[in-house]
Design a protein around this nucleic acid. Structure first.
Lengths: 101, 101
DNA sequence: GTAACTTATTTACTTATCGTAATTTATTTA
DNA sequence: TAAATAAATTACGATAAGTAAATAAGTTAC
């Protein structure tokens, strides 16, 4: 591992997207706000990692977390503008997948 | 972890792209064929993982490996059509990175 | 009043993957 | 025969992921 002159923003973007489950979580949220269990049921990801990833994405400002004090509590996750701005990239991967896989 | 009705092609695409370093390796190869050490120098990835990732990408048909029996040996990696078809997605991530990071 | 239920999250523990550095292979030159 | 070079592999400690059980906070059932 060495020093490079790689664009740090691209490196960070790839580090985000290139983290396991992140792409699929964002893809899932393109359908609109969803609660924790919905996402967990839609994807083959465990609650442990889903929680961890959502926390990272929230910290990076791609995802917003909203708590509804109902019974039992409801927590909804949705994309921010920054997160939704990745839709093009994700759709691109989606169409590549249908063409080439 | 559970059973889902997630599109298996998208899942596979995300699994490929979403593997550490894969995105940056493909991005690097968009500049044209490059030898092992060039890629290793351009990215903060160790030889151990670069070798592993290139092998995976070759197996999936995104990257082609060509050996030149010179002294010392030269090995060049380049994108296949299938690999180059991801350029749009990668460029999309790149422009997102410059806009939002 | 307390026992059971629900959703979101966390903890504990095992297994898999990563990062670093040294080693190997094959071939040529000093 | 020792050194050099490029590509790849190996060994091993460190980090991250997978699985299942536990926790928190509030509500309803008994």
């Amino acid at each position: 591992m060495n020093e490079t002159n790689l664009c740090p923003r691209l490196a960070k973007a790839m580090d985000l997207i290139g983290k396991r489950w992140t792409g699929l979580i964002l893809y899932q949220l393109l359908d609109g706000p969803q609660r924790f269990n919905e996402i967990e049921s839609a994807l083959p990801v465990s609650g442990r990692l889903l929680s961890e990833r959502l926390k990272e994405l929230e910290k990076e400002g791609l995802v917003e977390r909203r708590v509804y004090s109902e019974v039992p509590v409801r927590v909804e996750y949705s994309l921010t503008d920054k997160g939704r701005a990745l839709e093009g990239a994700i759709r691109n991967i989606e169409s590549w997948a249908t063409s080439w896989l």
